[in-house]
Design a protein around this nucleic acid. Structure first.
Lengths: 247, 247
DNA sequence: TAGGTACACTGGTTGGACCAATTGATTCTA
DNA sequence: TAGAATCAATTGGTCCAACCAGTGTACCTA
């Protein structure tokens, strides 16, 4: 027989529930300032300590902005501060590079297709700007990588899917950092300088020409190419690709 | 000129960093019991309150299990307790059904393909069991839906990608709950009883026959079908599909 | 009126206290 | 002696009162 472990209910969870409900029902709106901690704790009938645990949680979820000396404000969701709650979890959990890459691959190919359908002129402008910057500073590893990341992020943005964009950003950045640790930067130029520019251009053109299928295909090819390069590196790197929780 | 706002450093963030580093370096392993709060707070030179804010964060990330009266334990990642940090964020943020569905679609089609390549005999067994249960209790809405969800979850598991599985589970469950709120349950049977069984069977067969392309295709068709049904419902439902943060 | 200053208020942090639940050693019992 | 009941130490959960360091505002001054 298999029984579920019963979790003791905690007060701060009740508090969290009350506040989140107010937010999802629109009783509290972005930009609003919440009551002071002392006042709110009193209104809820809990201690300030407990209330603060709930507020801290809200902050981690990116739902609230706590300004010392100022107050607590409901975060404006339009700010694309991509601090996904996944980010920290990713940095700690022992996920294999392979697994994360599959997810990125899946999402980014989809995002490229969506971008081709729904990118605004402004989106296209940003994507092209990132592409130009890659061209202009391809001799500077750091700047090049930065522009590279921005290129991919701008495509995610162009998908007009905020959650997709957040997820992708999180995964892409994390994978990039994992690659750096494995020493990818040294060897990047062999490929990046010549090949990547072309691939990126193709992706951009497909999006610009409103060709979703081509955009998906170009993105697919690009990511497969990058991955091939990374694979050689991974074989004898410090990236742990085996210690993954199975099932 | 655009300047970034400087965030005052908080003590609990330092604490969080120390602990997470120990975890990612393997100094602390799943199952380990952390020091008592008083002792650890003393060792870190911070107050118990501050330490607790860090521990609470770790708990929300699913990295740690806090047992009142017992102690704090590093969570065993092998337990597929899918309490993604995303879950709460999803329940509060105003994400459009459409956006979440696109993500689910992308990931699940990929998962189906992977499952066809890598499913273990045990995986296949679980998937088939869920399928059988759907057949046996198709007259009971609740049980049917439960089996339906399990079917999809088991495929995600069969992809052998733990992170993918976690993400999918989170999105699928959330979308299901959103559907329920919109009154999907009443109308589900029109389609579910007849069509869905067939579609599910096709997906299972493709996975069983180790045919990734067919598995992807079958999953694609199934999800597109379900979505078509949902769309009619969404037009005049309580699901907010417009109030989504753009860009 | 413009500028500066004092003050009330905010979140951040601390230490101490008490509760309820768990745990493990101790003692009692059969 | 083996098992059961008991007790005490320990743990996390919650609360309280206090102080700090910033913020914002109202008031006062030049």
């Amino acid at each position: 027989m298999h029984l579920e472990k019963i979790k003791p209910r905690r007060v701060y969870e009740d508090v969290l529930e009350q506040i989140t409900k107010l937010m999802s029902k629109g009783k509290i709106n972005p930009g609003d300032r919440l009551m002071g901690e002392r006042e709110m704790a009193n209104a809820l009938g809990v201690s300030r300590t407990t209330l603060r645990e709930a507020l801290r949680t809200l902050e981690h979820l990116g739902l609230v902005d706590i300004k010392p000396g100022g107050g607590t404000f409901v975060k404006d969701q339009n700010l694309n501060q991509v601090i996904s709650p996944l980010a920290l979890a990713l940095s700690v959990e022992q996920n294999s590079f392979h697994d994360l890459w599959e997810i990125r691959f899946s999402l980014e190919v989809t995002a490229a297709g969506l971008a081709a359908q729904q990118a605004t002129p402004e989106n296209l402008q940003y994507i092209e700007a990132a592409l130009r910057e890659m061209l202009s500073c391809w001799s500077d590893h750091a700047s090049f990588s930065k522009a590279d990341l921005r290129f991919h992020y701008m495509i995610a943005q162009a998908s007009q899917n905020a959650m997709m964009s957040r997820l992708l950003q999180t995964f892409v950045v994390h994978l990039y950092e994992m690659s750096l640790k494995a020493g990818y930067s040294r060897f990047m130029h062999d490929r990046e300088g010549v090949q990547t520019i072309n691939e990126h251009s193709r992706i951009f053109e497909a999006i610009k020409n409103r060709n979703p299928e081509q955009a998906r295909l170009s993105m697919q090819e690009h990511l497969q190419g990058v991955r091939r390069d990374l694979e050689g590196l991974l074989e004898d790197s410090t990236i742990d690709d085996s210690n993954m929780p199975k099932v």
